Amino acid sequence: MLWTSEGAASAGLAPTIREASADGAFRRDYRLPDAYRPADGRGVRNNLAFESLTRSADGRSIVAATEAALAQDGPIATLDAGTGARVLVLDRSSGRTRAEYVYRTDPITAAPTDPANPYADRGLTELLALNDTDFLAVERSFAGGVGFTIQVFWTTTRGATNAAVRDALTGRERVMPTRLLLDLTAAGTQVDNVEGITWGPRLPNGDRSLVLAADDNFTGFTQFHLLRVRGR
């Protein structure tokens, strides 16, 4: 089993990618590039570190992504602009960094309307590998008084700049292209804080099922969305 922790940047704790056996026993920590370590205004931001984790289709790579830009890479999302999350590709066996790419989210969907909760954000919350270059990406936007917007995009590393050797982005990197596939909110579905996506079992007619999961977001319940994907 592979799992991530966002750490706690406010306390100087770095994020982690770890491997455990099926019974939960610790196996290994994967070494992360120093650019992710929070210190002196650099590295991951608090609660905006590794949200996404998936394996490549061939099983040889681990792909993890931050929710928002590293502190030295640029700002978090605003109503006018998205944020440049880093997508980290590690060799599954050796743990070496194979590549890093930039995934730029859309801007925050709406301005907050609740004076008691003026908070708003947007981030990349999950990736699911389709093959060795293409992914489904979940973006989650929230605004106080408005609620959540959950969108699923197609994205790919093809044509994107490999920024693996860069401690800080230059801003000239070619980002991973995206195409909107599904807007759960626009579809009339009541959504919460969706931060997980995975393939489910194949359906009786041969189509694939796709499962999206929201954490309980401190509300006391967990929400799942079951979707059908034709022709896969």
Rank of each mutant, 00 (worst) to 15 (best):
Thr4Ile: 13
Thr4Val: 15
Ser5Met: 03
Ala11Ile: 03
Asp23Tyr: 02
Asn46Phe: 03
Asn46His: 15
Leu53Pro: 12
Arg55Cys: 08
Gly59Lys: 02
Ser61His: 05
Ala64Phe: 04
Thr66Trp: 12
Thr66Gly: 01
Ala68Met: 13
Pro75Asn: 10
Ala77Arg: 11
Asp80Val: 06
Ala85Gly: 04
Arg86Gln: 12
Val87Tyr: 10
Val89Ile: 05
Asp91Ile: 00
Glu100Gly: 01
Tyr103Gln: 04
Arg104Met: 07
Asp114Met: 01
Gly123Leu: 03
Leu124Pro: 10
Leu124Ile: 13
Leu127Gly: 08
Leu130Trp: 15
Arg140Ala: 02
Arg140Lys: 06
Ile150Glu: 09
Gln151Trp: 02
Val152Met: 14
Val152Glu: 04
Val152Cys: 10
Thr156Gly: 06
Gly159Val: 05
Thr161Pro: 08
Thr161Val: 02
Ala163Asn: 10
Asp167Ile: 04
Gly171Ala: 12
Thr178Met: 10
Leu180Ser: 11
Leu184His: 04
Thr185Ser: 14
Ala186Cys: 03
Val191Lys: 06
Gly196Glu: 09
Gly200Met: 05
Arg208Lys: 11
Arg208Pro: 00
Arg208Trp: 04
Val211Gln: 00
Ala214Thr: 05
Asn217His: 00
Asn217Pro: 00
Asn217Ile: 04
Phe218Asn: 05
Phe221Ile: 01
Phe224Thr: 10
Leu226Glu: 02
